[in-house]
Amino acid sequence: MSGLFAAISSAIGWVLSIIDPFCGPLGVFTWLAGGSLLACGDTGWGDEIAQGFLVTASLAIATLPLGLAMGFFVALAKRSAEPQLRLAANIYTTIFRGLPELLTLFIVYYGLQILVQQALAAIGYEGPIEINTFAAGMIALGVVFSAYCSEVLQSAFQAIPRGQYEAGAALGLRPGQTMRKIILPQLVRIALPGLGNLWMALLKDTALVSVIGLSDILRQTGIAARVTKQAFEFFGIACLLFLVLALISSIVFAAIERRFNRSEVRR
């Protein structure tokens, strides 16, 4: 059985290496930068930077569902009839929208470290503890994203008339079903532009995790810049790669928006 998994993973790896947009046979760096500092392999920084690109993209993509889910529940809490719940949700957004992302990252990173250390010390383990920087980055960025996301979703909720809920109740749907089948599809359509902006902000905020040592685009290009003393070129490439990410996301978002707005009347 393990042989099968190994075979599958090696096959996936082979396919990925073929379609790798940076260092594959058709990759940008292979074609345009062979022999230069950006070459792939041991002679250049191409593969390291490609790795960083992958880390940045996967961090943003992994944070998105976490932040969206948390933001949705915080938005629900803000709309609740219960004043206590509303207050708690408002405190959450006030704190995490007001703190600089970098500070949130540090607080989560070092705070987690202290918490885990104390928890492990309580059960008798005394040793050095290393928090996974990817996880810390994911939590910090997810929390910030969810705080902004709850605001966007809350204003989208306000744009949906009460009649929609009443119609759902009149049809005999339970509250959960009303939410899933009637409210959510409209909510997504209304909130999509705002969520697109938040995604762009998230993408840019991922650059901060290089500070706590995750090897994303900025850290990899920074290392390359320090070693080769060609800072302008390498940080320029970092900017370009972020622009590529922004460009891809704007294309994807335009497609998603088209898809969700099919039902709108053309005027």
Binding site: K204, A207, L218, Q230, C239
Partner: peptide, 19 residues
Amino acid sequence: RGTPLITQLFLIYYGFGSF
């Protein structure tokens, strides 16, 4: 608007140093 502020800062602070 499409690139992070921190990369712009690095580009200017470290990058201009090479000129």
